[in-house]
């Protein structure tokens, strides 16, 4: 359970990091609509969270 919580926190952290990264990158582009940033951020956060969580789980199992 402890390991699982750790995975969850790491996944969340990486997902938030990716989202910030996205917002930063998108903002540096010229003429990006606010909506595009919202949409992109949700997408990036959601997917990166699942990917990292899956990877963590798979590695834990394979170990």
């Amino acid at each position: 359970m402890k390991n699982n919580s750790k995975n969850l926190i790491i996944s969340l952290a990486i997902a938030i990091l990716f989202s910030f990264f996205f917002v930063f990158m998108a903002n540096s582009k010229i003429g990006v609509a606010k909506f595009d940033i919202y949409l992109g951020t949700i997408w990036v956060f959601f997917l990166s969270f699942i990917v990292v969580l899956s990877l963590a789980h798979t590695f834990k199992k394979d170990k």
Binding site: G40, W43, V44, L47, S48, I50, V51, S54, L55
Partner: peptide
Amino acid sequence: VIVAVGSGLLVF
């Protein structure tokens, strides 16, 4: 699942 979601992110 990892390949699919990962590629979704990468492609985007």
